[in-house]
Design a protein around this nucleic acid. Sequence first.
DNA 1: CTTGGAATGTCAACAAGGCTGACGTATCTT
DNA 2: AAGATACGTCAGCCTTGTTGACATTCCAAG
Lengths: 170, 170
Amino acid sequence: MAQGTPGQTGQSLLFLTDEQLRKGIEAMFFAYRGFTADPDRILSDQGYGRAHHRAIHFIHRSPGTTVNNLLSVLGVTKQSLNRVLRTLIEDGLVASTVGKRDKRERHLTLTETGAALERALSDAQRDRMRHAYRAAGPEAVAGFRQVLEAMMDEEMRFYYDALKDRSDER
Amino acid sequence: MAQGTPGQTGQSLLFLTDEQLRKGIEAMFFAYRGFTADPDRILSDQGYGRAHHRAIHFIHRSPGTTVNNLLSVLGVTKQSLNRVLRTLIEDGLVASTVGKRDKRERHLTLTETGAALERALSDAQRDRMRHAYRAAGPEAVAGFRQVLEAMMDEEMRFYYDALKDRSDER
DNA sequence: CTTGGAATGTCAACAAGGCTGACGTATCTT
DNA sequence: AAGATACGTCAGCCTTGTTGACATTCCAAG
């Protein structure tokens, strides 16, 4: 497993040892646990799960989105999503309105109550993210994003890019 | 929401807008999907799931570990882990030996077959990680790790740090 | 030495949330 | 009129989380 000679970047090419990569893998594993921990707590108090969180998040992000759209972003089957969506609609967190142009479509939006839960969830998640960002500093954040973006499937990057972020504009 | 005066890093302190944080949240979401996609494919071919992967990974990392140890790292109930462990033992991927000093304990190690599957899984995952690392570059990788480490729960960082990583030693 | 509590691991049963397959209805498109 | 599309639903399965009950083993107090 010869690694060749060092490059000219000043950074060793050896930074890609199996050990290093393994460390990155575990970092993802443990960090993701932390990442979901706070919302999970809030949700389980209300009898919801992570699946509800995802639905709420993406409805909030794209108000008026259709069921089909949501399916693509979430990458689950309609039966799976429907179960979650049904409870959210029954509980009055999500409103489903028949499409104006295409009456087959249902447009999904958060109600006031739904928006309130969304805020609680994303506040908790943002607090942790903010804390991590502050601890690591702006340059680390840029690197963080670069690596994550490179780790996505092409298809997912499409949906990811759909979210506007002013910091990308310059 | 005044952000105070700019620091001396040359980076704006305003980098912590809700939008920026939200983008980071989605980056985690989509990247984690990619991160698990390859192993998931390999596993489902063999009738296993992500839980089996986690068990295999951490047994490989700490050969001879006990069930209790594994429970702490994985953060699931022993009953949940046991089911997974049982199938792995039945299928001859994991060996469970009664503790020598304390006969209540079971020490877990991978068999040859188990090690082979571990290799297949971590090869796939490392390939993606390596690709992401190469695309982003060494400095981005450092930032990536910093942010992820800051995002973990204290408790998890303890287990995370237990994994040796030579790149940390200098 | 015995005995009771703590630790370790196993078995059983249930729930959430994935999945596939089949089907019904309304609507749009050709 | 016919076929395609969007959505909902029923039924049934699997994985993986949960709690509760229980057996075994160890250890320390009496």
